[in-house]
């Protein structure tokens, strides 16, 4: 653990008690995430990637092990509003406009009216939704709704962004576009991003570090540091380095399946 570590997990275990006996959602997870990293969690369903993200967010409590976020427990970090969280669905409130939705966390956290307006305008511009402030969610496409939910997570300037398969429900063309925009956003804001996905190209394209996980019990099987440069045009996906990393991720996923 170095000085710029923002998230650190040591010997993390999480067991759910179900009617069919205990389920090991996470087993012996160790991971350090440094400031400014873009880290992806990839694996088949049931590998614990979403559970791990929810542990970081303080939405689940590990059964044992230690987990610190910005030097605090996840629950303290949640109360200190240390991160923005983007869910699988946009989950915008249908009774609020796009602007109103982005404003929601700001109202809860007690920002002043003028600051609210200023921030809403700024983050909507950041996700290319300037001018849609007065629209209602159902008047926007799925991709635009998801962008609005990202703006909502950015609005209060937490330096960690946790994203749980945010583009999983979108079609590939929209997804490519949003991936590109997300990278640009990350470069501009220098946030630490935790990103759950089950798409190999998406993980490789976005991340500085890829964490490969596998199920039963949920665990980390490989951690890959990406050699790709920070500047990544979409066609980088045809380069040799890209294909090599994708190959290694695929191998990691396959290895995790051997003992099935």
């Amino acid at each position: 653990m170095t000085a710029d570590t923002v998230i650190s997990a040591q010997g993390l275990n999480l067991t759910f008690q179900t009617n069919d006996g205990p389920v090991h959602a996470l087993k012996d997870v160790n991971l350090d995430i440094r400031k400014g990293e873009f880290i992806s969690f990839i694996g088949p369903s049931g590998c614990g990637k979403t559970t791990f993200l929810r542990c970081i967010a303080g939405l689940e409590t590990p059964t044992d092990g230690t987990l610190s976020v910005n030097g605090m427990t996840p629950d303290q970090a949640r109360r200190a509003r240390a991160y923005g969280y983007v869910f699988q669905a946009a989950g915008l409130y249908p009774w609020r406009t796009i602007g109103g939705n982005v404003k929601l966390p700001l109202e809860i956290m007690g920002f002043s009216k003028s600051e609210q307006a200023e921030r809403v305008a700024r983050v909507l511009a950041l996700v290319d939704l300037a001018g849609f402030e007065k629209k209602f969610p159902w008047q926007l496409s799925g991709g635009m709704q998801q962008r609005a939910s990202i703006a909502r997570a950015l609005a209060f300037d937490a330096d960690i962004l946790l994203m749980d398969e945010p583009f999983g429900a979108l079609d590939e063309i929209v997804r490519d576009h949003l991936n590109e925009q997300l990278l640009a956003l990350w470069a501009r804001t220098e946030k630490t991003i935790g990103f759950v996905t089950h798409s190999i190209p998406e993980a490789v394209y976005l991340s500085t570090k890829i964490v490969v996980m596998s199920p039963r019990p949920g665990r980390i099987t490989d951690v890959i540091d990406s050699p790709l440069p920070k500047e990544r045009p979409l066609d980088i996906r045809d380069s040799k380095e890209f294909i090599d990393i994708a190959h290694r991720v695929r191998e990691g996923l396959r290895a995790g399946h051997v003992d099935d």
């Binding site: 969280y85 869910f87 809860i108 956290m109």
Partner: peptide
């Protein structure tokens, strides 16, 4: 309210009354 909507309010560290007035009452209308 869906689990996701409640989780969102938790990530903001919102209290009971904030959750009631901002999320649950409008959703219950």
């Amino acid at each position: 309210t869906s689990a996701m909507q409640r989780d969102l309010m938790r990530t903001y560290g919102a209290g009971y009354w904030q959750t009631l007035f901002k999320l649950r009452l409008p959703a219950a209308m």
